[in-house]
Amino acid sequence: MTFLTNIHRLLRVLLWQPQSAIGTLLVAFFFFLALFGGQLAPYPNANDQSHDARVSPTLDIGSLQLGAHPFGTDRLGRDVYSRVILGANSIFRIAGLGTVISVVLGSALGMAMGYRGDWLDELLGRVIDALLAIPALLLALVMVGIIRNLDFQINSWQAALADEVTLLVIAILYIPVVARVARSAALDIKTREFVAAAEIRGESSAFIIFREILPSAIPALVVEASLRFSYAIFLVASLGFLGFGAPPPSPDWGLMVNENRGGFYRLTPWALEFPALAIALLVIGVNLMSDGIRRAVQKGGA
């Protein structure tokens, strides 16, 4: 029942089923790239334009040869292989951190709402319902657009914040979603008798929410977090593609797809296809893994 045995059991269940094992391995692979991409990429400078432009991929799967430019180079002479590897970092940082922030804050908010269940819950509940009625991508575009158009002094903290606008948008966007899940979990758990036992012991609300209710809600929250993560990756890629994500020279996968579509696709199809494949694989992997997590949690009940 301790945290470590839970992790252990979760991993065992995840790797036991073939689908979730594939998903978990895919995510682990990309996570590895995100951590060590700088060391693994042959050309660690993402904007290194020193190569010949429009070189076809030299990757030869039959003889397992990588060649000079496994995924070729784009029209500006940048190594696509290196850029795809380097791009893993930003997507994990933005989607991962955004998810973590939204899950932490959303859980706290939702738990407090569910446990109190008074007028505040009613009020916030309506606000959340209203927010959820707006399509996520639309809301994200509006938020990015507003923040982008604000003028900040260079090197001020507001400017630093504006650089992380995608991350912030994801965090803010998913707080209400997570809060709703946490709230319904808390509503269920608070009727159990150990919560009443804590109340008649005179425990504070914070103790009851975080020490009594939260542990039982963690399974539901873990499932929700993995789901949010997969949506976040999708959203980061979409924003990048629409030009609302990272600014141009950065090796963002969505941005790379956008930069190489249209007329450029005929010239250097590989410069679009490999980042697109990376996005697809990661999204599939995260989805398979979160499916597995859900199954594991439902089966174990903990």
């Binding site: 029942m1 159990r192 008798e193 150990f194 009443a196 036992a197 109340e199 008649i200 012991r201 005179g202 009594e212 542990p215 039982s216 903990a302």
Partner: peptide
């Protein structure tokens, strides 16, 4: 309500619940 009760009073009145499945925190 409960919040208004003094610690002393809380310790004087305790309860045993119906469902042993739910009355202990599983974690």
């Amino acid at each position: 309500g409960l919040r208004a009760r003094q610690q002393d009073l809380l310790s004087q009145v305790q309860m045993v619940f119906q469902n042993p499945q739910n009355s202990l925190n599983p974690y």
